[in-house]
């Protein structure tokens, strides 16, 4: 009896955006007299950080500090339409819509500043700290709070913008399947290192190496959280989870977390993660979607690592101790 060690590889791609398109999202951006800019959406943040991404993209495009952005979502009376949070579409669709809205708002902001400063709007720039200033001058400038007040009470100007992103619907050709299903493809390669206990059939995932090409990481810390959280879900899918353990027999379905086992923090693997950025031409600042794909490559990487460790080829998920012990028995019987 021994603890056997193995390494497995998997490489995958994943589409950004709702399959076949036809999925629009809108954004509205407006300045209040506080100098804050409100991004109005109806999009849903499931915990993945969409609100933060929307705020970063808005701040970048407006040329203002991140702290000046308020994200108001998701109320169908006050926010414009969004198809929803699924299909790795949020960052791409919402990001593009926010950029378009923020560009229009920025133009209005610069025009108002031009009138107030009595200069040409084309000669103005933002400094990223809250000032709109004449290029090459340190004196000729106005803070966004003063500008927002002046625009409303003195100039009679609005500072606002509208944005939408729509990938048009693609209809598959029925005979050949010719279609344009997605906006971009993100990529990943996972290496899993495991041990297999050949007495108990228990697999431990020791280390996962995750390399992701994501176009652009709008927030590298949150991208890393997606990668490592998703890898954890991949470990769980590979080794633990199902609502029908004897599928297709319908019986013995777990009813709660006492019966539906998932790996806790102590069961998780050590993670090493790397992000590669090849900006996508149609992505917001080049970003592709990686929300979903991060659970995918770990599963076959673990299956292949188990084979490398003990010679058992697993073709049914999840890879339970029972299935590994049965595989080992079969190998011994054959030998």
């Amino acid at each position: 009896m021994a603890i056997l060690r193995g390494r497995g590889y998997a490489a995958v791609n994943y589409p950004t955006g709702m399959n076949l398109g036809g999925d629009p999202t809108q954004a509205l951006v407006h300045a209040t007299t506080t100098g804050n800019f409100v991004v109005s959406l109806s999009s849903v943040d499931l915990g993945q950080g969409l609100k933060t991404v929307a705020a970063q993209v808005a701040a970048e495009t407006l040329g203002l500090p991140y702290e000046n952005i308020i994200v108001d979502t998701a109320d169908t009376d006050t926010g414009p339409h969004c198809m929803g949070t699924f299909a790795s579409r949020g960052t791409h669709r919402v990001g593009n819509a926010v950029i378009m809205a923020a560009q229009e708002a920025r133009e209005a902001m610069l025009e108002a500043a031009a009138e107030e400063l009595e200069v040409d709007a084309a000669d103005l720039e933002t400094d990223g700290t809250g000032f709109i200033k004449l290029k090459g001058s340190e004196e000729k400038k106005i803070h966004v709070v003063d500008l927002a007040l002046a625009a409303h009470f003195k100039l009679g100007r609005t500072i606002a913008g509208r944005g939408i992103f729509l990938k048009e619907r693609s209809y598959p050709e029925p005979e050949t399947g010719k279609m344009d299903p997605d906006s971009a493809q993100a990529h990943a390669c996972t290496v899993a290192e495991v041990t297999v206990d050949d007495e108990t059939g228990v697999v431990e995932v020791l280390h996962m190496y995750n390399v992701y090409e994501v176009g652009r990481a709008i927030n590298p810390a949150m991208a890393r959280q997606q990668i490592e959280g998703g890898a954890w879900m991949g470990v769980s899918h590979a080794l633990y989870e199902t609502t029908e353990p004897y599928y297709p027999v319908r019986e013995h379905g777990p009813r709660d977390f006492e019966e539906y086992l998932m790996p806790g923090p102590a069961d998780n693997a050590q993670m090493t993660s790397e992000i590669i950025e090849f900006p996508a031409a149609n992505g917001p600042y080049g970003a592709k979607g990686i929300g979903e794909m991060t659970a995918n490559a770990p599963i076959p990487a673990i299956a292949n690592a188990i084979y490398d460790a003990c010679g058992v080829r697993l073709t049914e998920m999840p890879f339970t101790p029972e299935s590994i012990l049965r595989g080992l028995d079969e190998l011994r019987a054959r030998a």
Binding site: K51, T52, N96, M222, A281, N282, Y285
Partner: peptide
């Protein structure tokens, strides 16, 4: 559409690990 610039770097907020709004 929409990406004002796609060269690496040169951003003030994009690409920065700012704290998430709801953390």
């Amino acid at each position: 559409m929409s990406a004002p610039t796609t060269e690496a770097g040169g951003f003030d907020v994009v690409g920065k690990p700012v704290q998430r709004l709801d953390a």
